[in-house]
Design a protein around this nucleic acid. Structure first.
Lengths: 379, 379
DNA sequence: TCCGATTTGTTCGTATGTATG
DNA sequence: GCATACATACGAACAAATCGG
């Protein structure tokens, strides 16, 4: 649904949300007009306008003297069912992220081969958008959904929608991250282990002052930070607090670069290694280092994450952590089809289970042991 | 219709009668609200109630500032008994191509905002797959399709499917390229002009031996080759046949690199400039040059195509040709909605038209005039 | 059956915002 | 810039239906 800037639109959306997230069950009475007036601090006229439209759209019905009630859409649904065929929704945060297309492609290929259509939605990491799409998944009648959670590190305001999906027996799985409270089926990469490998690699090469850059508004970032810390503890390397740089999606273009520059300018505990949230950031930081004539890997070792095509692009090939991207999408497609075709009711089928993908380090030229001479590159 | 005792019911009935008896013809303006107030001696609110219901029932439509008009009911019947849902298919060749996500995102954002679901299909540039998806689009009942043609340079064995789409009045548009025989609505970048700009730029800087690399299994590549040739002719620069390197999708990882190496090894007519099919190839070729210690731009100028984020990634920032990617997707979304909601039957509506996006050259550091000293980079 | 409180239904008045021509 | 027309919003009053006591 489009963004409603008008008051009645806000009221309308609020009511509709409570229908879709299951707060108002079919035939249950919704609050009276006067209650709504207080609740939203609007006039009765405005409340009536909102309710009126929902009535004409078939969401509610009114009974004079009695109240306004939630309509039972389940019956109309059969008649109304729009998409006759097999449809799966994929909800991601950013379609454009350099890493996502592979995952989407993997899922699309598998699902297409099994006769399903794949619809794409991207939330731009915005909870509002996520809600809008969950509403659409419920109303349009998708057979299942593959969802990358929006802002997975923070509490999710749309929990009720997910619970309603379960109530309506629309299977869904989460990829890359998940909301703890839901305990959904999921397909993940072992992010903590990944960052552990990044950090361990540098520690074993003698690095002690290692900066970690983590995007912490999603679960992946916080897990990777955990892996970074774990490696330090396990190898008894003291942790310097300001060597951990966290940033949010909005800050990704500015903050890490600025923080690195600040850390390079200070004299004590000069960093010799960088652990990056992903390859994109690593490339960005390499550019910063290049401008300061800091040689890689002689003066600074740097490790990326994702093992994307970016690792091969730079002059110095990037050491990175590899995870199977297309396979991850494929596994997600397989899991959701298992759920649709076999398992009704979460937890029923012991045969169906979440998947955690293993991860490994791919060593290239952007890291070396402290003090070591660079080997001449041989092709 | 039953007798309406309420005032708004009377007004409503009166208006409806005049529609049914032909007093108000389709698209004719009906009296304004204030006129109705006088005529029926009721308040404005009452008039609005009456008109409002007629609008939701599809008898009238309102335009702010202009007036209220009689709807054309004859056409709505056809649309209404069809599918209640809004679904658009996007068929691309490669979801994973670094340039595609932006286009898909642009289209997805626009279509989502207008309440449509977007389904994704990728053909891997395989006609078989394309056919499979076209079948699915027809049988599943999509409202429209945005299609990037598979192997657009060669004849298409699935022409009949496209013709059938037209017969079934399922609107479709093509992006990036199109099959000549169909003359579809389309959203394109001016590829020929783009390659003309690439080549012209080098010629004006004194380059005479310019290699052009073109992927010629799609229309874009052949058009770009045309632009390359046109620039040579226009500036009266002789064309060396083996300075044109063509390759297919399958060959893209190997052939251009090998051809470049072969051309560098030969002694006569040493190339001083490279015109690349896209940025990805340009970066790949830059790596080849780097291994041979050929300096860019002193010894070799190189121009990319797409103005993607890759241009900023390399040590030497890449001169490239820019086209608006997300806007192209957006325009495609807009065009298909125009066709769905307004235009039935191709060619009918003169208001709806194909779009060709302008293109421009973005000069960075990977090109310079023959013999010129490199300016020191200043930040 | 009636009463009164509650809830929706109809109607009027008024004001301000915004798009169109 | 101006008048016109629809869009949104507040307030008030009374009518009609429902429901519990």
């Amino acid at each position: 649904m489009l963004v409603m800037q008008t008051k009645y639109g806000i009221v309308k959306q609020a009511i509709k949300s409570k229908i879709l997230d299951g707060t108002y069950e079919p035939h249950a009475k919704i609050p009276s007009e006067s209650e709504m007036m207080k609740q939203f601090e609007v006039s009765r006229h405005t409340v009536r306008l909102a309710i009126g439209e929902l009535v004409t759209e078939g969401w509610l019905y009114r009974e004079q003297g009695a109240g306004t009630f939630c309509a039972d859409r389940s019956k109309q649904q059969l008649q109304h069912n729009g998409m006759p065929n097999k449809n799966i929704a994929i909800v991601t945060t950013y379609i454009s992220d350099y890493i996502f297309p592979s995952i989407i492609r993997g899922a699309e290929a598998y699902l297409s081969d099994h006769g399903y259509n794949v619809s794409l939605f991207n939330t731009n990491n915005d909870h509002e958008k996520e809600r809008e799409y969950l509403e659409r998944i419920i109303t349009t009648g998708f057979d299942g959904a593959i969802i990358e959670p929006t802002k997975s590190a923070s509490a999710n305001p749309n929990i009720n929608y997910y619970l309603n999906l379960e109530r309506l027996q629309i299977p869904y799985i989460m990829i890359n991250a998940y909301y703890d409270a839901l305990e959904p089926f999921r397909v993940l990469v072992d992010d903590e282990q990944g960052a552990f490998l990044q950090t361990e690699h540098l520690i074993k090469q003698g690095h002690r002052d290692i900066i970690g850059f983590f995007k912490t508004d999603d679960m992946q970032g916080t897990l990777r930070m955990k892996g970074y810390l774990k490696a330090h503890r396990e190898y008894k390397v003291p942790i310097t607090p300001n060597h951990i740089v966290t940033y949010s999606t909005e800050e990704k273009h500015e903050k890490p670069v600025k923080e690195l520059e600040a850390l390079l300018n200070q004299s004590d505990a000069k960093p010799t290694g960088l652990v990056c949230y992903n390859d994109e950031l690593a490339i960005k930081l390499i550019n910063v280092l290049r401008e300061r004539n800091i040689k890689i890997p002689q003066d600074m070792s740097i490790v990326g994450f994702d093992d994307s095509f970016l690792t091969e692009l730079s002059e110095v090939k990037l050491t990175s952590v590899a995870h199977p991207k297309a396979e991850l999408g494929r596994a997600a497609g397989k899991l959701i089809l298992d759920l649709i075709e076999n398992g009704q009711g979460k937890g029923y089928e012991a045969a169906i289970d979440s998947v955690v993908f293993p991860i490994k380090l791919v060593t290239r030229q952007s890291t070396q042991a402290i003090g070591e001479e660079t080997l001449e590159k041989t092709k």
